[in-house]
């Protein structure tokens, strides 16, 4: 029941956000329509950091309890992390082409998100080569911890490079932010947030089912 409410809320807010992004929010003076991509891009980027934080919680939970449910929690966070950061990098690239010229600019935020994405992908690759669930949970928790510790150090070093090699910066918000723009951003934040929560819930449920299937397979094999 709760899930259904969440699903409907997500759908409604997504549609509202789409309407507001394309029809309600005014056309930005400097960047034109390309600026509208930011209403989605920024919430996606934040979701990436949220995923990193949730993975860290999963890792700590697993170290404290040894319970596989925390492993599933961390895996889910990383799965959404890969999805949302990859989407964010694509939207960023689509924006960069008309505004900055190149598809890809190695600015601080982009670089940081790319490295975070690579860490999440490495986390998944490691998991896929560890068939035993207990071992998979333990080793990917160690890697997850080391990877998440890396985020602030990464941020620091990338930030330092950029401050020492200044480059042309167009602030993501563009020129002045009108109240309509602010409201649109708020709504799309809500929509992406709800979508994240919904997907998190569903992915977690799938992870649980996967584990049960895995178990049943083992039982069947043991009885053959």
């Amino acid at each position: 029941m709760k899930l259904k409410v969440l699903a409907i809320l997500t759908l409604v807010s997504m549609l509202t956000a789409l309407y507001m992004i394309f029809l309600y929010a005014p056309r930005e003076a400097l960047q034109g329509d390309a600026q509208r991509i930011f209403y989605i891009h920024v919430p996606l980027a934040i979701s990436g950091y949220v995923s990193a934080f949730l993975l860290l919680i999963g890792v700590i939970g697993f170290f404290r309890t040894g319970d596989l449910k925390w492993d599933r929690f961390g895996e889910t966070a990383a799965a959404l992390g890969v999805t949302f950061i990859s989407a964010q990098l694509i939207t960023g690239s689509l924006w960069s082409r008309p505004i900055w010229g190149p598809w890809w600019v190695w600015d601080a935020r982009t670089t940081l998100q790319l490295v975070l994405d690579l860490i999440f992908i490495a986390y998944f690759m490691l998991r896929s080569y560890l068939p035993d669930p207990q071992k998979r949970a333990k080793l990917s928790a160690v890697f997850g911890l080391l990877g998440m510790i890396d985020v602030p150090i990464n941020y620091l070093s990338i930030y330092l490079v950029r401050t020492q090699h200044p480059q042309a910066v167009v602030s993501p918000g563009g020129g002045g932010v009108s109240p309509e723009m602010g409201l649109t951003l708020t709504v799309s934040f809500t929509a992406v947030g709800l979508l994240y929560a919904y997907l998190f819930n569903r992915r977690l449920a799938i992870a649980k089912v996967e584990e049960e299937v895995d178990y049943l397979e083992q039982v069947v094999l043991a009885h053959e």
Partner: peptide
């Protein structure tokens, strides 16, 4: 390398 390169980015940059 898949595990190590992303994590050593700060070392390499610095």
């Amino acid at each position: 390398p898949v595990l190590q390169i992303p994590l050593t980015v700060p070392v390499i940059i610095a």
